[in-house]
Computed example of a mutant assay.
Amino acid sequence: TGGAGFIGSHLVDKLVERGYQVRVIDDLSLGKRGNINPRANFCSEDIKKLKQIKPVFEGVDCVFHLAARPRIQPSIINPDESFTNNLLGTHNVLVAAKKAGVKKFIYSGSSSVYGDQSVSPLAETLDPRPKNPYALHKLMSEQLCRQFTDLYNFPTVCLRYFNVYGERQPTEGAYATVVGIFLQQKASSHSLTVVGDGTQRRDFTHVSDVVEANILAMESAEAVGQIINIGTGKNYSINEVAGLMDCSWIYISFRPGEVQETLADISKARKILGFRPTMSLKVWIQQQLKKMV
Rank of each mutant, 00 (worst) to 15 (best):
L87Y: 14
A67H: 00
H65K: 07
F105D: 05
R23M: 01
V56E: 03
N85V: 09
A97E: 04
F57I: 09
N35S: 04
G19Q: 12
P70L: 01
V24S: 07
R23I: 03
H65N: 13
P74Y: 04
V16G: 02
L28Y: 02
L50K: 04
G59S: 11
R39L: 11
I72G: 09
L94D: 06
A96R: 12
I77N: 13
I25D: 02
Q52E: 15
K49W: 00
L87I: 03
I76L: 15
K99Y: 03
R39T: 01
G31W: 06
P55L: 13
E81L: 15
S111W: 04
V22W: 05
F57G: 11
Y107P: 02
L30F: 12
H65G: 09
H91D: 08
T84D: 13
F64P: 06
R18F: 04
I53Q: 05
I72M: 11
C62H: 10
A67V: 03
L28M: 08
R71P: 03
D61S: 15
P79D: 11
Y20Q: 08
V113S: 07
F105M: 08
A97V: 13
V63G: 08
G101L: 12
S110I: 08
Y107A: 01
G89S: 07
G89D: 07
G101H: 10
A68M: 07
G59P: 02
P79Q: 11
S112G: 02
V56P: 01
R18N: 15
